[in-house]
Structures are given as structure tokens and as C-alpha cells.
Simulated scan of single mutants.
Amino acid sequence: MKTIVVTGGTSGIGQALANTCLGRGDRVVVVAPDPVKGKKFLDAAQKAGAADRAVFIEADLGLVSENRRVIAEIEQRFAAVDVLVLCARYFRSRRMVTSEGIEHNFALYYLSRYLLGYGLADVMNKAETPVVMNIAGPGAGVPGIRWDDLGLERGYDGWVAMFQGGRLNDLLGVSFADGGSTRRARYVLLFPGGTRTGFAGEFDVATAAHIDQMKRVAQPVEFTVPPILKIIDAPPTEPLSAFVEGTPLSLLHPAFDKRAATRLDTITRQLLRDKASAS
């Protein structure tokens, strides 16, 4: 029985994966912000006779403090974590800053994934074949990272924020995989293809219309689960892998530049130190 942690596990791809893993006998820890959806997950597990393998942790992963609380709780409750699946994401047409002073998309889509991956590395080291599965958009051909404005204070656009978040996660995977023997978990970046999910967010009129069009041509969410399970059950041997709709992506792609990854890692560590000293 694997212990699988799924962020954003009460909707979309995360929900479909969590339910499938629970149904096949895994222990599933869902981390999400909505207690009502969390209760539905636990109630369904109870009806299926799987209550002892279902855990819900309510958390706003847009906050650094909440990520740290989740890490501490998981470390306390579980001897080992086999799989960490990072699905949590929330689109915003208008810029929003968290109560900790960080732009929300950067905080949730990138910084949370950074914190959870590194924060759970020790407990994942205790698993037999640990894997971090980052559901993002590896190698997307979008404009470069705004290094001087990661919080997009100037000219915020929801799509720019989302695509930049994908680029940041590419570099996160590079940095994590460079940990050598200190981190045993394989890091996998995966874009499963356009998927008919709830696409959580707050949209302006034009974006809402575009999202509706995307949903009409997207694949059912159930189609995304088998490829993810395949990787979970037989992780690649390489420290870092990237897949786009099942096709491996070369790590020679510019999106995986090691110098840029080191630059981002340095910026992120300094940001976290500054937040810690200010609290």
C-alpha cells in the first residue's frame, strides 16, 4: 500500500486521481482548502469501506505558513510518503496578493510546490520508490520569465501568470533533481493534455468564454489518470523527467537551463528567509 499525497485533490485531475488511488487500495492524503469538498471525499471513502485510508488536510496552500503546517502534520502522521502529486492551481484574471504579501499565482502554483517538495523530501526518502509528480506544463513555448518582476506587479495578465508559473516549475524540477543522494525521490513534470475539469479560478468575461471553449474540446478527466498511475507505479530511473501528453521531453530543452534554475533557487531561498525574519 502506497501513501500518496495529492494537493488540489478535491477537484479536477487531483480528485480523479485521489479517488482512483483510494479505490485500488492506497492510502490517500488530500490537501485542499474547501472543508465541504473535503468532507465529501471522506464520506465517499467511508461508504466504500476505505475510511482508514482516506485523510483530508484543510489548508490554503497559497500561504507559506500553511504549507509548513501541512509538512509538519504529514511528517508527524506518516512514517513514509511514496508519492507527492502537485495539482493545486487557481487562475486569476486580476492580480491578487496573499496576506503574506506574495502574488497569489506565484505563491500557489510555484512556491507551494517548492515548499512541499523540499519539505517532504526526508519522509519521502523513507519510501521504496518515491516520486514527486508535478502536474504543470513542461517546456511550454511562452515568453521568458520576468526575473525583475516575478510577482507581475507591472502589467499583470492571468495567462502570463499561469504560463510563467509553468516555467518556474520546470526550473524547480531541475534544482530538485540536482540534490543527488540527499533526495531519493524522482521528479516528474507532466502535462497530461487539455482536460475537461472545473478549471478553478476567477475569470473576466473574455477569459471565461475562452475557458468554456477549451472545455468543449478537452479530454475527459478520467483519461488523465492511467498515464499518471503508470509513472507512479514505475517511476523513471532518471532524477528528472518531463512528459507532454505521454511523450518524453528532452531535458536539453531551454526550459531546463541549469543556470536559470540556480538563479531561481537562490531568489526563492532568499524570499523565504526574508519572510521568516519578518514574521
Rank of each mutant, 00 (worst) to 15 (best):
L61A: 01
V225Y: 02
D157V: 03
R184N: 05
D212E: 06
R69A: 11
R186H: 09
E153I: 06
G137R: 00
L22C: 14
T224H: 12
D274G: 02
G180E: 06
V55S: 08
Q46V: 04
V55N: 00
C21F: 08
A127K: 08
V83E: 04
A88N: 03
A185S: 08
L189F: 09
E245F: 00
A50W: 04
P226L: 11
V205Q: 14
L172H: 04
L22F: 11
G12T: 00
F56V: 05
V30G: 11
P35K: 04
I232Y: 03
S65N: 04
G165R: 01
Q219V: 09
D157S: 12
E100Q: 15
A177E: 07
I57V: 11
E75Y: 00
F78W: 13
F243C: 13
A45C: 08
L111C: 07
Q15S: 15
Y118K: 11
T7F: 01
G101P: 09
A209C: 09
L22T: 10
G25K: 09
F203R: 07
K230M: 03
R92I: 00
G9F: 04
Q15H: 12
K275D: 05
I267L: 15
L86V: 09
G144C: 08
R196Q: 14
V70A: 09
L264P: 11
G14T: 11
E128H: 12
I232C: 01
V225F: 05
I231N: 11
G173Q: 09
T20N: 06
M1R: 13
S250P: 08
G139S: 00
V221K: 14
K40P: 10
A140G: 12
A44K: 07
A59R: 00
A44Y: 01
R184A: 14
E245V: 03
S65P: 03
R69V: 00
D157K: 06
V205S: 10
L42Y: 08
M162A: 10
R259S: 10
I145H: 13
A255C: 07
V132T: 01
F106M: 14
G62L: 07
K39D: 15
F41Q: 03
T129H: 09
R95K: 14
L172E: 07
Q76N: 10
D60F: 11
T247P: 02
A127G: 12
D204V: 02
A18K: 07
T247D: 11
W147E: 10
E73S: 06
G8S: 07
I145M: 15
R95C: 04
L120A: 08
D43A: 14
T224N: 14
